[in-house]
Computed example of a mutant assay.
Amino acid sequence: PGRAAMAGGAGDYSVPAWKAVCILAAVAAATAAGAALDVRRKGGAGEDTGPRYWVLGMLISSYALLIPGLFSHLFKSNTNLFGTETLSEYDETMVSLVGRLAHDAMYLGAVLVTLYAMVVPTLKLVLLALGAFLKRRGTEHQRLARLCIVVVQAVSKWASPDMFAYILLMYLIRGWDKPPEVNSHMDLGLGFTCFCTFCVGSTVSSLG
């Protein structure tokens, strides 16, 4: 799954602009709705009223994009000589890419993709939930709750290396394109758009 035979070129898997706009608009709308609730929130000066709603709106909407980010098409590429001899061919989701890297004995790559795209986001979510839980247990747990939030803020950016790696990979593969001798093309798919939006949204909300 996640891999398909390609007869010639890689095809066009780029995300239409309207889909990207809709994804960004959904996150922006959830954040704006949270901000509107924050304005109406009542609380005295210095009173702890819990996490801000705009943070929750951005965090929840960003994490909702992680699932399609992992299971939707990430990229599709094809490099061939004279349109006949295929040198490399990929059609992957984030999850299938991990499987392919492991199958090809590229274990370090498989571990790094898994770490940045799956383990770090899960760790952030667990620590945020744990921090919120401890915060409500009483003053004796406040220090530990604060530690959870600080750790989240420290690791929040570590889902992003994958994002830059795919951008650089696309630049590299498209740079090989020297027709008619070498035909090389790569498109980033919906999974990449969702994952990038997740990276930015979850990082901003974690710092907020």
Rank of each mutant, 00 (worst) to 15 (best):
T114P: 00
D12G: 01
P161C: 06
I167P: 01
A145F: 03
M58C: 13
S14H: 08
T122M: 12
L81H: 04
V182M: 15
T79W: 01
L81R: 04
M186H: 04
W158Y: 13
G208F: 14
F164I: 12
A10Q: 05
V15C: 04
T114H: 00
Y166L: 13
Y90K: 03
Y90W: 02
A4E: 14
Y90E: 09
Y107H: 10
V15F: 05
F133S: 03
G83E: 09
L56A: 04
R100N: 06
T79V: 15
L123H: 00
G43K: 05
L108S: 10
A29D: 07
V55L: 05
R136C: 01
A29Y: 12
S77R: 05
S77N: 07
A4Y: 06
D187A: 15
G34V: 14
P51V: 11
C199F: 09
R137H: 03
R136M: 03
F192N: 02
K157G: 06
V150F: 03
M94R: 00
T122W: 08
A159M: 05
G191P: 06
V95I: 15
C22N: 05
E140W: 00
T197Q: 07
Y13E: 13
F133K: 03
Y13M: 09
D12L: 07
L188M: 12
G11I: 14
A154M: 08
W54V: 02
Y171F: 13
A29S: 11
S72P: 00
I149N: 05
Y166A: 14
G109P: 01
M118C: 06
V204L: 15
G138S: 05
V111I: 15
V204I: 15
T139A: 10
H103F: 10
G99I: 11
A145S: 15
G57Y: 01
L188N: 09
L190I: 15
T49M: 07
R3F: 12
A28W: 05
